[in-house]
Amino acid sequence: MAGIVGYGAHLPRHRIKVEEIAKVWGADAPSYKKGLMLREKSVPPPDMDTITLSVEATRRALIRAQTVDPKDIGAIYIGSESHPYAVKPSGTTVAEAIGATPDIHCADFEFACKAGSEAMFVALSHVDAGHMKYALGIAADTSQGAPSDALEFSAAAGAAAFIMGKDNLIADCLDTHSFMTDMPDFWRREHEFYPQHAGRFTGEEAYFATTKGASIALLKKSGMKPADFKYAVFHQPNGKFPQRVARELGFTQEQIDPGWLAPRLGNTYSGASPIGLSATLDVSEPGDLIFMCSYGSGAGSDAFIWKVTERIDEVRDLTVRTHKLLDENIIYIDYGTYAKFRRKIKMNY
């Protein structure tokens, strides 16, 4: 099957701590930190959005792809719930910035937090079907949580980009499975600024049932068991959910550790499991199997089995690793700066 020939991630440098948000709303920070396993989250500054994050992640994917000419990329798909325009594509700006225009197909995908993995899935499928030599799947978000809502403690920003191809793979996709039902657990109506969610209903019946549905079906289809994998990556709306779903499926903490970024990154929505995959590829060895399962409210999961090739040793350090972006040169901001950055203050212009 087709697979990944280049990957890259990008994260904002700014972070806000759970305590800083809790202080403003009189919330109990220790209970959020313990209950949701969140310590801090990334915050995009005003000059960063889904398009700029996508361009930077894609440039890193091109560096790791080494020999891919952008003109040979036949499609760019960006999955996000925070496309900067309501009407005007994000993908065309990325295509222009990397020099892939004009003979290319672009589409912006939306499916809550699953939009990124579906961009990867469609890119992979086009290449697998022989429609094009390379296709780019991008997962990017600058997500919004309403002030004082539980989501405000987690809604974060980041991106990962994957160039799919058939030759010179970094990771071969061995199998996939997608699982969808109509689930009203999280939504944002047209013209509304902040999303709404159904509280605890978003857990058991939505996230856990859907993630397990896709994961169990893919394990069955592939004839594999959790112990066959070196690593696993799940959607991470907080630190706790992926930990619990991994345990209930039979994966260990050691398997999810490299891609378990939410406690320090927050929920990057469409970016969550794809950025986790980039961090996992960074530490993988040739021959490792990686299990990945996204989740998007509404609701659905896309699950993938990746087999890492020997090319990983050659490319992983050609550009910055995801954990370096997560761990180093962090700028902590207060709630006032955060409110300004996320345009939560009414202005007179």
């Binding site: 005003p46 000059d47 960063m48 398009i51 700029t52 930077e56 900067p84 325009y85 700006t93 910035a97």
Partner: peptide, 23 residues
């Protein structure tokens, strides 16, 4: 050089992208 949003014409206007310098 990093790809960033440079300016917007207004709340309704087109977004302008380009590069800025970061450490």
């Amino acid at each position: 050089l990093e790809f960033r949003r440079i300016q917007t014409e207004s709340h309704e206007g087109v977004l302008s992208y380009g590069h800025k310098f970061v450490p």
